[in-house]
Each structure stands twice: as C-alpha cells, then as structure tokens.
C-alpha cells in the first residue's frame, strides 16, 4: 500500500507541472470569464446561463485532461524508461497501475475543486451563492473523469496514446448518448443496432448517471444517499477497468 501511495504521490507531483494542465486551466478561466460577460448580455436568467456555460466548460476541461494525461500515463514512462527503475523495486505492476490511477485521479479532483471554486466565486459575484450545487456537480464530474481514466488506462495497455485518446473521446460521447441510442433502438427494428446497444451498455457505463448539471441548475436536490450510491457505482466501474488494465499490464512486454 505504501508503494502504491508513493507512486500516486509522485504521479500527482509530476502531472501538476504538466503544460497541458496549465493550458486547459487558462482556457477554462478565459471561457468562464467570457461566459460571465455573455451572461450579462442576456435579458434574463443571467446567473443560470453563466452557471450552465461554466459547468459545461469545466466538464469538458477535466474530461479532456483525464483523457490526454491518462492515455499517456504508462506509455510515457515506458518510453522514458522511468518505469524500469520503479518495477525493479519491490513494486507489483498492479500496484503501479493503481498508483498511477490514484495520482491522476487526485490531480483531477484538485483541478475540479479549483474550477468549482472559481465558479462559486463567479456566482457570488453575480449575487447568487450556489456553492453546494456547484460542488455536487464537480463531484459528479470527478467520478466520471476517474472512470474515464480507468478506461483509458485499460485501453493504453494495447493501443498507442493517440488512438487511446480517440477511443476515450468516442466512449465519452457514447456514454452520454446512451439514452439517444436506447431511443433509436426502440424505434428501429434493426437487430444490429440492438446488439450494439446491449454490448455497449454491458461494457461501458451510462455517464449521464454522474451528470448532475441539469438537476443543479434547476434546483433539484440530490440526497446524500443518491450521491453515495452514484459514488459506489462509479467505484465499481473504476475497479472493473483497473482490474482489466492491471491484468493486461502483468502480461505485457514492456518495450520502449
């Protein structure tokens, strides 16, 4: 466990210096400021519009960050040969994978926290104090990102980083369009579409489960039980994908 936490800690410290992170944070800040200005141009619902826009930008920023950094998390260390100095120590490959996951997930948590804090302060500036709603949405986005990190860690065991990112984006979109896919399946008698729907729902989570933006914006309250159940469900998906990633990691040849 100590070795796992060491890997997580060094991963966090390394990634927090990543230019990709800094770039995305700057983009988030700029777009959020732009959204505040945009909100002022609207006749009504200024706060709701700014909040909706800000939460969406935050969502895309942290998801982008998770996919980009997650896809290269292991391969980069193989290419740079850093992994060889780590795995020669009493450290299992499974511990390494879980440590890397924890490090990046912690970074996404930190980034999401910063973004939510900025949004809370922005809303305060606009005269509304939505701190609980915004943090709840941020929490959901962090769970979703952690699942996506586990997914790309799994995919990166057999795909190159650019292909992993591409597949990650595709799964992100599919994960949010499950309802549309279900609707299409019901309307269309094509057996192929139904099989596709069944397979996708079996191997990949419906990411809308953790998308609480709409509820929050329209003032719906999420009970602690709901949050805990959603968190537990997220943990199961993370665990499943991390287990598969670790299984493949144990079997693969590490070649720079």
């Amino acid at each position: 466990m100590k070795a796992l936490l060491l890997i997580a800690s060094v991963t966090f410290k390394e990634l927090i210096r990543e230019k990709t992170l800094h770039g995305l944070l700057v983009v988030f800040l700029l777009i959020s400021i732009f959204s505040l200005i945009l909100g002022q141009l609207s006749f009504a619902e200024q706060v709701r519009m700014s909040l909706d826009f800000g939460l969406s930008v935050m969502h895309l920023s942290v998801v982008g960050l998770s996919l980009i950094l997650g896809a290269q998390l292991v391969q980069r260390e193989i290419d740079r040969k850093t992994i060889f100095t780590l795995l020669v120590k009493p450290l299992q490959r499974t511990q390494y994978i879980f440590g890397k996951f924890l490090g990046l997930s912690a970074l996404i948590f930190f980034t999401t926290f910063l973004c939510t804090l900025f949004l809370v302060l922005s809303m305060r500036y606009l005269g509304q104090f939505y701190w609980r709603e915004i943090f709840t949405t941020g929490f959901g986005q962090w769970i979703e990102c952690s699942i996506l990190i586990a997914v790309v860690l799994f995919l990166s065991q057999f795909l190159k980083p650019p292909v992993t990112i591409f597949c990650g984006v595709a799964l992100f979109l599919i994960g949010h369009w499950f309802e549309t896919l279900r609707f299409l399946t019901q309307k269309n008698p094509d057996a192929g579409l139904k099989i596709l729907h069944d397979v996708l729902t079996f191997v990949f989570p419906n990411l809308e489960i953790w998308n609480w933006k709409g509820m929050v914006i329209y003032g719906e309250f999420l009970s602690p039980l709901h949050l805990a159940a959603a968190f537990g469900q997220g943990l199961l998906w993370m665990g499943a994908y991390l287990f598969l990633a670790a299984l493949l990691m144990e079997r693969r040849d590490l070649i720079a």
């Binding site: 060094v10 410290k13 390394e14 740079r80 040969k81 850093t82 060889f84 100095t85 020669v88 120590k89």
Partner: peptide, 16 residues
C-alpha cells in the same frame, strides 16, 4: 528484488 539494483540505459528521472 531486495538484493538486486538496476539502472537502464539513458533513463529519464522525475526532473522536479
């Protein structure tokens, strides 16, 4: 693992 030390060729270490 406890009794062996290893250094690969041209490794990259955590620069920070």
């Amino acid at each position: 693992r406890k009794r062996v030390g290893y250094l690969p060729e041209h490794p990259h270490f955590y620069g920070f």
